[in-house]
Computed example of a mutant assay.
Amino acid sequence: MTGAPSHPAGRGAPRGWGTYAQLPAGRTLVMGILNLTPDSFSDGGAHAGVEAAVSHALAMVEAGADVVDVGGESTRPGADPVAPAEEQRRVLEVIERLAGHGVVVSADTKHAQTARAAIGAGAQIVNDVSGLGLTEEMIEVCAAADVPYILTHARGDSATMDSRARYDDVVEEVRAELLQQRERLLAGGVRPERIILDPGLGFAKGGDQDWRLLAGLDRLTSLGHPVLVAASRKRFIGTALARARGTEQVPAPERDAATAVISALAAERGAWAVRVHDVAATADALAVTRSWLAAQSTIDHQS
């Protein structure tokens, strides 16, 4: 793997990271969200049934998704936990069907048993939001399968995360805690080139902490791992929009345009991928960003 040379997709996105799972290199990728849960914060129950789920996932790929992130347990604050057996009932057939269509699938799970089964069904990436709750079994599963692992910063679980959003310097503390968990992964046999970092926007974050993490994204991209930005429709976006509009709150589906702006800014700052609900809007935003930065690069070389 190479270091992190700049290129038209963003200032610091590492070219070599795009080769994961036959993914394109040289640009920020789009990860489409497929929630197979009845209680997700913005689209719970929207894709009930295998056929509806597969159809929506394929539509996201057609709209520009490079990866489809399939999850069977809501991770919103206050969500009820889901047993691994039920989680697998919701996701495994969908993953198998999508893999059969040649879709690059990420398994969004905190459970090692589900990660193992999802990999067996064709998932090529594990997206684990357990954060400081990362288990040794999950490390063993990902090391043995040699799959890319998304290491998310989080404190506590759905019931306790909001109470743990206390930081003196959120960027530095998130960075330090990610590095701490990275050492566990490396010690457990996960190769460094298989580790992807996610600052965990919305997970044990409150107030302006999510915005500070986005503003400090360079502190994470400089660590030499690809960085995933998962901001889509999250509460901090709704709060900012409500403040600007002078309203109480902005419903989750009305946050997609703002999400696309964040995706474009994250790409400019070197994000490896962005995780979103509205794939088409973000794919367009990233295309415009690439054109802008390519033109800027041309001007810079001429001057």
Rank of each mutant, 00 (worst) to 15 (best):
A4L: 05
G18Y: 02
A21W: 04
P24V: 10
T28F: 03
M31T: 00
M31C: 00
I33K: 01
V50Q: 08
E51L: 08
A52N: 12
A52M: 01
A53T: 05
V54F: 14
V54K: 09
S55F: 05
S55D: 15
S55M: 06
L58C: 02
A65W: 00
D69W: 07
D69C: 04
V70N: 15
G71H: 11
G72A: 10
S74N: 12
T75F: 13
P77E: 03
A79E: 06
V82D: 12
A83H: 12
E87N: 05
L98Q: 13
H101T: 02
V103F: 08
S106M: 03
S106T: 01
A107Q: 11
D108I: 01
T109P: 10
T109A: 15
K110G: 10
A118G: 08
G122T: 07
G122A: 13
E136G: 12
E137T: 07
I150T: 04
A154F: 07
D157P: 08
L179D: 02
E193R: 08
P199A: 02
G200F: 10
K205F: 10
G206P: 01
D210F: 01
L217W: 04
L220I: 03
S222T: 09
P226A: 04
V227W: 04
A230S: 14
R235V: 11
T239Y: 03
A244H: 12
P251S: 06
P251L: 05
A257Y: 08
A260D: 00
S263L: 01
L265D: 01
R269C: 04
A273G: 04
V276L: 12
V279A: 04
D284M: 04
A287W: 03
V288G: 05
R290H: 13
Q296W: 10
Q296T: 05
T298S: 14
S303W: 14
